[in-house]
Nucleic acid binder design. Sequence first.
DNA 1: CAGGGGTGTTACCGGTCAGTAACTAGATAA
DNA 2: TTATCTAGTTACTGACCGGTAACACCCCTG
Lengths: 200, 200
Amino acid sequence: MTETKGLARNESPDRIPPRDRIVAAARELFYRQGIRAVGVDAIAEAAGTNKMTLYRHFASKDELVAECLRRLSVEKNEVWARLEAEHPGDPRAQLQAWLREAAGNVSDPRSRGCALANAAVELPEKDHPARQVIEQCKQTTRENLVALCRRAGVARPELLADQLFMLLEGALVCTQSTGHAGPACQFVTAGQAIIDAHLR
Amino acid sequence: MTETKGLARNESPDRIPPRDRIVAAARELFYRQGIRAVGVDAIAEAAGTNKMTLYRHFASKDELVAECLRRLSVEKNEVWARLEAEHPGDPRAQLQAWLREAAGNVSDPRSRGCALANAAVELPEKDHPARQVIEQCKQTTRENLVALCRRAGVARPELLADQLFMLLEGALVCTQSTGHAGPACQFVTAGQAIIDAHLR
DNA sequence: CAGGGGTGTTACCGGTCAGTAACTAGATAA
DNA sequence: TTATCTAGTTACTGACCGGTAACACCCCTG
């Protein structure tokens, strides 16, 4: 007895709590169809639950959107530790690995760009709870990329980071308007040229 | 007599026909607030008319969206003739002028990115009437940029064009998530570096 | 003058939206 | 056991959505 101390309740078939199922379903639907195109009923149904349970966990749809982007933001920020773990003490190898990882996202045929950037397009209201999540995550990404470029020993780390940042954002948004056979297929070549130019 | 042969009717105060007012109002509202966030009633009211007149000119809201993007597409394609007129027979100067013109769009504090790219984010349905307009315009832009780079005499015109294309798309989308003080402020520097590298 | 086409106005349709109330079932914890 | 907490279910609200019907208006043309 005294086994399940509150953290494992109501696991009928899947043992995933409703809150997590809701966030997972919402993330997928928001990303595939767009935030404004998805209703809360559809999210609840895709999560195998209902609207009331959704509203017991989230004050509003906007808050659910923010929570989805918050989780994505956390996941995105994990890449820096992973790069360091894969190439410890070798920032240049980490930069190359970053480029390859980014290329994987760009070339993924299921990709619909960056969910955060897409949300910024769909939600222009400055006071939307998702906006600070978006801006915070992008800012953190930029800072981590600058730090990596600095450790790589380039003369102008901020410039290199911003060039790579814009290149990646551009490639991701390109796939949605020109497809994966458009300019985005030059992502690696372009990124490598930028890095090489900075490494002399 | 026989003056106004049908082209100047119903010009009460402004002499702009309702259809054009509707498209102008829709373009502004779609761009500022997002396509899905704007209702047809709001468009009609902003155009100084009503919903019935709107639906007499457009079969549906989706068709109105497509028409808005079609007009934007036409305007965007005018840039190539303008560059040629301003720097006749000097493709390298035209490329520089393109970069400066693009920089103007990026740094404009009222800019919310490219309306076509934003629409591609908001309208993922493959059969939406706006999609072929988006893809067609982006494709044409890419081809014109490749042609300009080729005339400029660089060794790999397709690569240069795609690099500049991604850079511009990235800068435009960046302004919506990281603001105008983010990576986008390095647009000109980055673009110039790319061009210089190709011109040896 | 008579006619007609483009416009304005009002009211309406069915559907969907975000969000809530009230109640039931089931599992846990004392 | 009893009490409590969470989740499921149904039904509902009021607002708004895209789109339409019917009719009055007005200016232009014949």
